[in-house]
Amino acid sequence: MVYKIRDKETGKVYEVTIDEETNEITVYDVKTGKPVKTVNMTIEELKEAGYEVEPV
């Protein structure tokens, strides 16, 4: 599923895909559409880390 996340401190917005089964999150560069990095976190962990998470 695709989400937009926003860093509450910097205001930067990222587009991510989240595999609900493995909790693998792939972060994409919004301008190029290319993957930047992959992390292993849940949506709740993202929120605790200071991100706003919205489904696209």
Rank of each mutant, 00 (worst) to 15 (best):
E54C: 14
G11A: 02
D7E: 08
V53K: 02
V2G: 09
T42E: 01
I18R: 05
V2P: 09
V36K: 04
G50Q: 03
Y3G: 01
E20L: 14
E15L: 15
K31G: 11
T26E: 02
R6D: 01
T42C: 02
K4N: 05
N23K: 10
V56K: 07
K47V: 11
E15Q: 14
K8H: 05
V27F: 15
G50D: 03
P55R: 11
K47E: 11
M41I: 09
K37R: 12
T17R: 14
K12Q: 13
P35G: 04
D19F: 06
E24R: 13
E20Y: 13
T38I: 10
Y3Q: 03
E15F: 15
T10I: 01
E48Y: 09
N40H: 14
E21A: 13
K47M: 13
G11R: 03
E45C: 08
E44M: 10
R6E: 04
E21G: 09
I18D: 00
K12M: 14
V36T: 07
V13C: 10
K8R: 11
E48A: 13
I5A: 05
T38Q: 07
T17W: 13
E9M: 13
D29G: 02
E44Y: 09
E24W: 13
R6M: 08
M1D: 07
D7H: 15
E20K: 12
E9S: 13
I18L: 07
D19T: 05
E15P: 04
T42V: 01
K4M: 13
A49D: 06
V16H: 00
E21H: 11
E21D: 11
D29Q: 02
G33H: 09
P35D: 03
K12T: 12
K31F: 15
Y28R: 08
E24H: 10
E48H: 12
E45A: 10
I43S: 02
Y14R: 00
Y3L: 09
K4Q: 10
V53H: 02
E44H: 10
G50S: 03
V13M: 07
T22L: 11
V16R: 00
E48T: 10
Y28A: 02
E54M: 13
Y14K: 00
E45K: 08
P35K: 13
E44V: 09
K12G: 05
D7T: 00
I43V: 07
V27N: 01
V39E: 04
